[in-house]
């Protein structure tokens, strides 16, 4: 295989007493689509923040094309960020700006293109996500799914070759979901984009992924191809993929802590020695 584009090496991170990652390792290769799965609150969104250099980690290294993220200077970090398009969980459109202004902003800030060209680009990308008739609306006037598609269009404006999607289809109707999936596939096939997709949607995950990774208890519990995930006997993966109730996967923040609370005991004395909050 080629050189990895992004390498995560032994990442550890806690917020106060809450340990999010301990010893997280993963390589992401150019041109692949990596789907990251994991329970709510397992640190998927936080991981994207780490990859963008927006959050200090406690230990470990993030390498971008072999270069440590921590050691990058302002300019290097900026050019890394410019080369990545990020779709945030909520879309993260600027609420004080119309869709048009939202999309134009990054291009205005970072290039010397004239206003007409930028406006043309805005229209093209809005057309691509099916929002062109809403071009002059404020985000408050759009539905959740439309905001997400707007956020996607904005992420594409700088023509990034690397894309991070945080739950791109969560909360969307099946048709919109299929549209977004199609779009992600096209970006990969036509532009050879490298994508990291965080999703709960098994169907999308299997459709999009070259590889899948399951984040559990601060580590990647399983990393493998679609085939491997379909056929594995790993109980954790099975439970997650099949969406079953019983299994090793417990939502860390509910079951254990409430048991502990009810029993008035310390959390780490909870049965099956599960380390949680």
């Amino acid at each position: 295989m080629s050189e990895p584009l992004i390498q995560l090496q032994g990442i550890c991170k806690s917020f106060g007493d809450t340990r999010i990652y301990h010893d997280l390792n993963l390589d992401i290769f150019p041109g692949e689509t990596l789907v990251i799965m994991g329970g709510s609150g397992s640190g998927k969104s936080t991981l994207l923040r780490v990859l963008m250099g927006q959050l200090k980690i406690d230990a470990g290294n993030v390498l971008i094309r072999g270069r440590t993220l921590d050691e990058m200077n302002r300019g290097e970090l900026d050019s890394w960020r410019k080369s990545v398009g990020v779709l945030f969980q909520s879309g993260a459109l600027f609420n004080s700006m119309t869709l048009r202004e939202n999309l134009a902003l990054p291009v205005r800030e970072h290039t010397d293109l004239d206003d007409e060209t930028i406006d043309l680009m805005v229209q093209i990308y809005l057309q691509l996500v099916g929002l062109r008739e809403h071009i002059d609306k404020l985000p408050a006037e759009l539905s959740g799914g439309m905001k997400k598609r707007g956020g996607l269009a904005r992420a594409l404006m700088m023509q990034p070759r690397i894309l991070f999607y945080d739950e791109p289809t969560a909360g969307l109707d099946p048709v919109s979901t299929a549209q977004i999936d199609e779009l992600i596939m096209n970006l990969k096939n036509k532009m050879g984009a490298t994508s990291v997709v965080v999703t709960h949607d098994m169907q999308s995950a299997f459709k999009l992924a070259d590889r899948l990774a399951l984040l559990f208890d601060g580590k990647f519990a399983a990393v493998g191809s679609v085939e491997e995930f379909r056929t594995t006997t790993n109980p954790l993966v099975r439970q997650f993929v099949d969406g079953r109730l019983e299994g090793p996967f417990v939502n860390p923040s509910d079951q254990c802590s409430y048991k502990a609370q009810l029993l008035g005991r310390k959390i780490n004395e909870v049965p099956h020695g599960q380390k949680t909050t």
Partner: peptide, 20 residues
Amino acid sequence: AEIGTMVVGEEIEAMEAMAI
């Protein structure tokens, strides 16, 4: 209030992620 709302809406993070 305005900037706080932007923080809550992930807008500041989005801005950083766009290298602004």
